[in-house]
Amino acid sequence: MKEEIDDKQLLQQFAIESRREQVFHQIVLKYQRRIYWHIRKIVIDHDDTDDLTQETFIKAWKALKDFREDAQLFTWLYRIATNEALSFLRKKKSKNTISINEAHEELILALQSTSFFNGDALQMKLQKAILTLPEKQRIVFNMKYFDAMKYEEMSEILETSVGALKASYHHAVKKIEVFFEKQN
């Protein structure tokens, strides 16, 4: 609730032109980590994530003047970030004309070669298992499992019904369990 009030104050102050940069700096400071990690879990590579995080905030800056408070600021930012990350992956696929399997392999390769991974073997295994999931299921799983997000919030961000999200998460968990069983 506190977060909501703060966001409202930030948005009110953002409307004052002389304070815009300062307020936007505060918004970035507040949400940069959540947005970065949300994108990172989708595109894996740090440099790509860095570009997409910046792009997300640039788009937010441009559209923030017309932002209506019928949505929460953070769900709105998450939505921009999700769209940016998904369209990045699609562009990459169409540019390299690769199949879905090849795209998964590329992501696994990026996971194995990234220098910004300090997790243990089990965490690596979990990431590999997550990468075998279809894009949407992967996002749903990440948001629920790692970000502890409520289904209602996820529904607002992904514009999908709560029921469909629950089903998606259930399927994702089952697939990951199967992956772990096979590995063992």
Partner: peptide
């Protein structure tokens, strides 16, 4: 700490 990823 859950994902195993880190940033520069």
């Amino acid at each position: 700490r859950n994902t195993g990823f880190n940033e520069p």
